[in-house]
Amino acid sequence: MTKHLSVQEHHLEETRVKTIFGFWSYLMTDCILFGTLFATYIVLHTNTFGGPGAKELFSLPFALTETLILLTSSFTCTLSKLAAYRNDKNKVILWFAVTFLLGVAFIAMELNEFSHLVHDGNSWRRSGFLTGFFTLVGTHGLHISTGLLWMIILIIPVFRHGLTPVSLKRLTCLRMFWHFLDIVWIFIFTIVYLMGAL
């Protein structure tokens, strides 16, 4: 009986390692997608076509707040991992709920920024620079929204059936996705906002 269990556990562990490696490979290809968008933005960022540039449009304290919110959400996301080791279902749900709310706050700030830009006539149709900006930052925002949706989808089964090896594996992938988005944002903050303000 014990032998049978260990074989099963071995199988589960092997599946887990393979899944995480597969998901990691997906994240690496997603990095290349963002890399091409960064290259596009850097090439186009001087082409303002007589319109406003990064310096006039973006507010540094606003971008810093967004960055700190996303960093904190990345941290609370990690805390859910420690709760998962202790098999503490409620703590896992709590930390994911905090991460979710911070993610919503982030996406709300970003949409607010976008709507102000569009309202002032500085939409993606205004210049090459703004096309690059909306594509890069919008793609990141779309990833964040997907992550938020994914969080809801994964947390409902945890809420109903508790932590299982399968749900733990899925939550690990979600955490990797969330940290990855934080890393991409660090570069958006540096290249778009900080370098734009110079």
Partner: peptide
């Protein structure tokens, strides 16, 4: 439960250090 124990790495302190480092680096750049 061996599955979960095998996964264990890091403590709150470890993650808190990472978090503080990230905040410090962000603020320094800002």
């Amino acid at each position: 439960m061996t599955l979960i124990r095998q996964e264990e790495k890091g403590t709150v302190k470890f993650y808190l250090l990472g978090f503080i480092l990230c905040i410090a680096l962000t603020l320094a750049a800002y």
